[in-house]
Simulated scan of single mutants.
Amino acid sequence: MFACLAGWLLTGCGSKKRASRANPAPTGQKSVSAPSGDLPEDTGDFVFFEIGSPEEYIRTFAEIAQREMRTYRIPASITLAQGLLESGFGMGELTRKTNNHFGIKCHTGWEGDYATHDDDARGECFRKYNHPMYSFRDHSIFLSSRSRYGSLFTLDPDDYRGWARGLKAAGYATDRRYPQKLIGLIERYNLQRYDAEVLGTMVRRKAPVTVSEGIYNTHRVQAGDTLYAISRRYGMSVDELMKINRLSSSALAIGQLLKVRADSNNK
């Protein structure tokens, strides 16, 4: 998987579509806010993929949407539907000049590159990324790190209808028909199948969760966290932490949710 993503930075990971390169981002500006170490290093080149149809968009980005679902528990179907809608299947004016697939504005604290674009108002500030992968990762971080979206992460990870309604209720979009548009795209293109594929290898959980091993809460991975540090904090062994979260390696991503013991003395 990682080799495919690393190769995609240059070639499109098996895709025949054209990838165009532009000048690097201005010196001193980052193309994305602190991407986790599981993404390839940003080369500084602006890489844009020519997409010919919604179906091609789905084929191109389904794998990374599933990768984000495994790490952040955002349904791949929702990520793909939002990308299709917000980016005009990757070919909208804003996306062509920023690789911003989710219409995320700069907001306070954004230190990366940006571009202005007329949206709800003239000349609004939108985040700019050197590669679509960083837009998908920033979308995951954006949703998982803001308290107003917190209730969405208590939903079952295949509840795309609940996610669609919850995004609108939390203020992601001003369009009153936003949920219906997302649900329509998901069901038209059968995007829920990508959720089902992920759930074949993923534990469904809410916090707290009762499973055969005991009762667990969740821990959201922060910058600097390691499996060893988390295991010590919650009175667990690294092997136990890996087992109950079905981890195949010790690599962690910022914002990732892990099951941890609920009966520990951690405060």
Rank of each mutant, 00 (worst) to 15 (best):
M1Y: 09
M1D: 09
A6T: 14
G7E: 00
L10P: 01
L10C: 10
G12M: 01
C13V: 00
C13Q: 00
R18E: 04
R18Q: 08
S20M: 08
S20G: 07
P24E: 01
A25D: 10
P26S: 06
Q29P: 00
S31C: 12
V32C: 13
D38G: 07
L39W: 04
E41S: 13
E50N: 14
I51G: 03
E56R: 10
Y57T: 01
I58T: 03
T60F: 14
F61R: 02
A62Q: 13
A62C: 12
A65F: 01
M69L: 01
M69H: 10
T71V: 15
Y72W: 12
R73T: 10
I74N: 05
P75S: 09
A76Q: 04
S77V: 07
T79L: 13
Q82N: 07
G92Y: 02
G92Q: 01
L94D: 02
R96T: 09
N99H: 03
F102H: 02
G103S: 02
I104H: 05
T108D: 14
G112I: 00
Y114N: 04
H117V: 00
H117E: 00
G123E: 03
E124L: 05
F126Y: 01
K128D: 02
Y129R: 04
S135C: 02
S135H: 08
R137L: 15
D138E: 09
H139D: 06
F142C: 05
S144G: 11
R146P: 03
S147F: 13
S151N: 15
D159Q: 07
W163M: 02
D175G: 03
R177Q: 11
P179N: 03
L185A: 07
I186S: 11
R188L: 15
Q192R: 11
Q192T: 11
Y194H: 12
A196F: 10
V198D: 04
L199F: 12
T201M: 10
R204F: 10
R205P: 13
K206S: 14
K206N: 13
T210G: 09
G214H: 09
G214A: 05
I215N: 06
N217K: 13
R220A: 12
R220H: 04
A223G: 05
G224Q: 12
Y228Q: 12
S231L: 07
R232Y: 04
V238K: 02
A251C: 13
A251W: 15
I254D: 02
I254E: 10
Q256T: 01
K259M: 15
D263F: 03
S264N: 06
S264W: 07
N266K: 10
K267M: 13
